[in-house]
Amino acid sequence: MVQVTFGNNPVTLVGQEIKVGDKAPDFKVLDNARAEKTLADYAGKKLLISVVPSLDTGVCDQQTRKFNEAASELGEDYKVLTVSVDLPFAQKRWCGNAGVENVETLSDHYAVSFGDAYGVHMKEHRLLARSIFVINEAGEVTYVEYVSEGTNHPDYDKALEALKAL
């Protein structure tokens, strides 16, 4: 199992570790209009899923803005999602204030379905551990990064290279 820290303190991750070659697990989250979304809603797309603890923090803000900028250069076959446990209302407000239009933010606040399915639910905090998942059109995971310390940045370049290689 993946070992991560948050604020340099070890946390317990709930769920199974996802590895390259795995079939991407399904999930149920809410979009900014509180409509339910599942993996099936993105079938046939090349996905980069950016997972953050909360959009209202510095690293999460920067991570989402970085992927928003990159997403503006991708074609229609690509989709960049940001998943957090922030409420849909807060995500919508944050996106409006930040001018983020190329990344779709999804809320896992209700059941932590995504967090449990992808092994990123930090039990002690009921937040999601910072991580990146790239999924091809066939629903296979082709890149995974569980960031070892939750306050650190992911490897943006490697994640975007993995997405563009699809």
Rank of each mutant, 00 (worst) to 15 (best):
E140W: 02
S113N: 07
S148G: 13
A129P: 00
G139F: 10
D86I: 12
F27E: 08
N136E: 01
V120A: 04
T105C: 12
L74P: 03
R126K: 11
P53Y: 12
K45C: 09
L87F: 15
L81S: 01
T57A: 13
Y156D: 07
L81H: 01
Q62P: 00
G21A: 11
V52N: 08
P154S: 07
E101G: 06
H109Q: 08
G119E: 04
V4N: 13
V52C: 06
E161D: 15
Q16R: 13
G44A: 12
L87I: 14
E69S: 13
P88E: 11
D31W: 05
Y42W: 10
D77V: 07
T5V: 15
G139R: 09
A111H: 11
K46G: 02
L55Y: 06
V144L: 09
A159D: 11
A70K: 05
E124R: 10
F67T: 03
A40K: 12
T105M: 10
A111W: 08
A43T: 14
E76Y: 04
K28C: 08
L106V: 08
D61E: 14
R34G: 04
T57C: 06
N8F: 08
K46C: 02
L87S: 15
G119R: 01
F67V: 14
V103T: 06
L128V: 01
A117L: 04
E17G: 02
A43Y: 05
L47Y: 02
K19T: 04
F27K: 07
Y42K: 05
K45T: 09
V147F: 08
G150R: 03
A33H: 09
T5D: 09
A129C: 02
V144W: 09
R65N: 15
A165L: 10
K46H: 05
V85Q: 02
T105E: 05
A138T: 12
A165S: 15
V112D: 11
G75A: 07
L166F: 13
L47G: 03
Y118D: 06
N97R: 12
Y118N: 11
L163S: 01
T64H: 05
K37A: 04
K92R: 14
K46Q: 07
N97Y: 08
N136G: 00
D86N: 15
F27S: 08
L166A: 13
L106C: 08
F133G: 02
N8K: 12
H109L: 11
E145P: 06
M122D: 05
E69Q: 14
C95W: 04
I49R: 03
T142N: 07
L55M: 12
E36V: 14
Q16M: 07
E17S: 13
R34V: 08
G58M: 08
